[in-house]
Design a protein around this nucleic acid. Structure first.
Lengths: 149, 149
DNA sequence: CCCCTTAATTATCTTTTGATAACTAAATAG
DNA sequence: CTATTTAGTTATCAAAAGATAATTAAGGGG
């Protein structure tokens, strides 16, 4: 029963993931954005059809706070809202042109960090890395209570 | 050049790791602890010889704020400080008996979440998972600027 | 001894984030 | 057509976290 040692390994691993992603994103986060605002922008960049409800579910916020931060992001001209024509209560949030530009740069910078770590690997190594990611995402790091459509 | 697709896979993966660890820890975090205080306790639990300086380096805080939160944790009787006899400027931070008890419960609960996800795996599967963790930690999620002794 | 550095603390102020209640507007069920 | 639900907003208050300056106390070099 060596499951406990695997548990400790998983704990150390997730700490390392947090540490590495923090290192990569913290250097590129635009100074005008609070941490939460940046996280929301990242989410919107990856989920272009997000609604406010979806954002506060996935980011574990409350509706009023989500609404406030989206308002701030709108005032900073980084996102734009549009209304669902079928159900006009629902709003879609998307990056504005300026937001798009900023997040493209941010992701490019993060990708550079990533590629720097990958550059000395053969393509077999990369294939192994990809398999490892798939495996861990299938076995451990998946999302049980996902609500997205 | 399929490195870009690997990058996107890595981004999705690290999001999944954050999501899963959030789900596992948020349900067990004692209500009397703020998120930062809980994070510090987790760190101390895993690094029993931590000093305030080390904590603020690793947790990306400033010394005054670290000092304040350690004070709060002391007032809550969850940690205790001792002084290095060779260099009396340095303090070691450790869990108190009560802190130890609480964090033991916390980790047990997190481990239960983990074991629940692992239970349907054969021991070959588990070995593969372990290898995958080792590989990703070696190739991607390591700590370049680690300062620990 | 004096000066400089390191480790940590205290005090204070600001920003960020979280929580709650009250409200509007649109959709939907009866 | 009214009543209820859903999506989102506004306002407000409180807690948490970040930033900075000033201070204490110990160690080390000259």
């Amino acid at each position: 029963m060596e499951n406990s040692s695997l548990f400790h390994k998983m704990v150390a691993f997730s700490a390392a993931v947090h540490q590495t992603t923090h290192e990569w994103t913290q250097t590129v986060r635009p100074a005008a954005l609070s941490p939460v605002q940046y996280k929301i922008l990242e989410y919107i960049a990856v989920h272009p059809t997000a609604t406010p409800s979806e954002i506060n579910d996935c980011m574990h916020m409350s509706m009023p706070n989500t609404s406030r931060e989206l308002k701030h992001l709108t005032e900073k001209h980084l996102i734009k809202k549009s209304t669902n024509t079928n159900d006009r209560r629902k709003h879609y949030i998307q990056l504005s042109d300026q937001g798009e530009k900023i997040m493209t740069e941010v992701f490019a910078s993060i990708e550079n960090h990533f590629l720097a770590r990958m550059q000395n690997n053969t393509s077999e190594d990369l294939a192994k890395v990809e398999d490892a990611i798939d495996l861990l995402q299938e076995k451990i790091f998946y999302d049980k209570q996902r609500k997205r459509p």
